[in-house]
């Protein structure tokens, strides 16, 4: 029901500061979807048409590389995924695969962008999340480089 969804949406950090009435509207305008374990929410390389808020369950973020699929992160309740492709207008950078039965709210791209336009707080929160991810990624990259330094010959 919408009211429960609004409660859940309030737990999501980037949406926390939005008024409940607006959250209800957002919930109504979004599709509530269920995924089975192993089903993909989105696939790497597809067009980014929606953002997903996980209401319950867990999912893996997977990137395919020449060496095969690599799991780069996992996400759980209240996480928001798929926002990069929507914000940057690029194709999906990773595959999101459900690792359990998953309940998500699927927010269409145009709805999400309207939301960012209407509420600057949302934009700030998204920045915060992205910056955290970036620092995390940088740390991982540093670690990886230290293990396997790139050759200087080139």
């Amino acid at each position: 029901m919408l009211i429960d969804e609004v409660e859940m949406l309030r737990q999501v950090p980037i949406l926390a500061r939005i008024k409940p009435a607006k959250l209800k509207l957002l919930a109504f305008a979004s599709d509530r979807m269920t995924y089975r374990q192993g089903q993909d929410l989105c696939r790497q390389g597809d067009v980014g048409d929606a953002v997903y808020v996980i209401l319950s369950g867990t999912a893996d973020i997977i990137v395919s590389s020449p060496a095969g699929e690599i799991k780069v992160a996992d996400v759980g309740e209240n996480a928001i995924v798929g926002e990069i492709a929507v914000l940057c207008d690029v194709s999906r950078t990773a595959t999101v695969r459900a690792t359990s039965a998953l309940e998500v709210l699927r927010i269409k791209k145009e709805h999400f962008l309207e939301l960012v336009n209407d509420f600057p707080q949302v934009a700030v929160e998204i920045m915060r999340v992205l910056a955290a991810r970036l620092s995390h990624a940088t740390a991982e990259l540093t670690a990886a480089r230290a293990l396997n330094p790139p050759s200087t010959a080139q």
Partner: peptide, 16 residues
């Protein structure tokens, strides 16, 4: 009415 009354008529949410 509660959800939509203060939205401009061409807002994307009306699709739903």
């Amino acid at each position: 009415v509660e959800l939509f009354h203060d939205l401009p008529p061409h807002h994307a949410f009306f699709q739903q």
